[in-house]
Design a protein around this nucleic acid. Sequence first.
DNA 1: CATATATACTTGCTTAATCAATTAAATGTG
DNA 2: CACATTTAATTGATTAAGCAAGTATATATG
Lengths: 140, 140
Amino acid sequence: MTKKTISASCLIQNALIASRLARKVENRLSVHGLSFTEYLVMDYLDNAPHKAVPRIALAEHVGMSASGVTRLLAPMEKNHLVDKVANQRDARQSLVKLSETGQRVFNEASVSFENIAKDLLVALSTSQQERLVDVYAKLI
Amino acid sequence: MTKKTISASCLIQNALIASRLARKVENRLSVHGLSFTEYLVMDYLDNAPHKAVPRIALAEHVGMSASGVTRLLAPMEKNHLVDKVANQRDARQSLVKLSETGQRVFNEASVSFENIAKDLLVALSTSQQERLVDVYAKLI
DNA sequence: CATATATACTTGCTTAATCAATTAAATGTG
DNA sequence: CACATTTAATTGATTAAGCAAGTATATATG
């Protein structure tokens, strides 16, 4: 049995915990017809309320490839959760924004998401959660 | 723009950070011909040195489905990284253990992994990393 | 003891995401 | 200004993993 540094343990635990949490979130978000990734995208768009954002910025933010974003957004557009907006300054870009429907669906889903988050992180105090967010900020 | 609780931020950041970290680990482990998931499996097996472990326990540990484990282990068996061992007490189970080759490959890869972990977590002090591991332990 | 239920996998099929290649537009350089 | 390079997005092909269904074995109950 190989000895491990704290960094290695940390990285391993992070991966294991994140995949467990993601699975649980996924299950519980499914009542809104959204995947966790879709929720993350909508959360990002919700935080950029006026500006429609380039797909590439979205990809960067959620840590996906450009093609991943194209494929993720395609059905969301078809279901009118997001709108595609042309960028006047740059014809290569197409911007994305939450549609009115998308905003409504997101608002509903985020009520669930708040409950999910509360449930999954119940073992951590508020200050532990705050410290965790600070720590994550250093890793970006 | 919707207001968010600390729990929700925490859960979102956790997912975003974990996928970034996983991608970087994946890239750098690839020189050993291993995916991050394969590394996680081998790490688990390395920590259960004498006992061969049931596939179901492995699935549980790494947060994968049973079928996921079957499909992950198939090529690893073919490449002789792991051995399949029958359980005398229960013919349904087939146990997995690191082969000699697997152990060697893991030992080599874990040198890289230590460096990867050190690099990726360089922004965190040792004590922050320790606290992070403690926090993760509460979420299991 | 026989039958029902539960458990440990495996297999078929589907899906989400990747990479590599492609297209189209913008920018920079001789 | 023309041509090379870079950037944004999409498409084709592949892959990892999930769920549902199936098989085989083990356990529990009438």
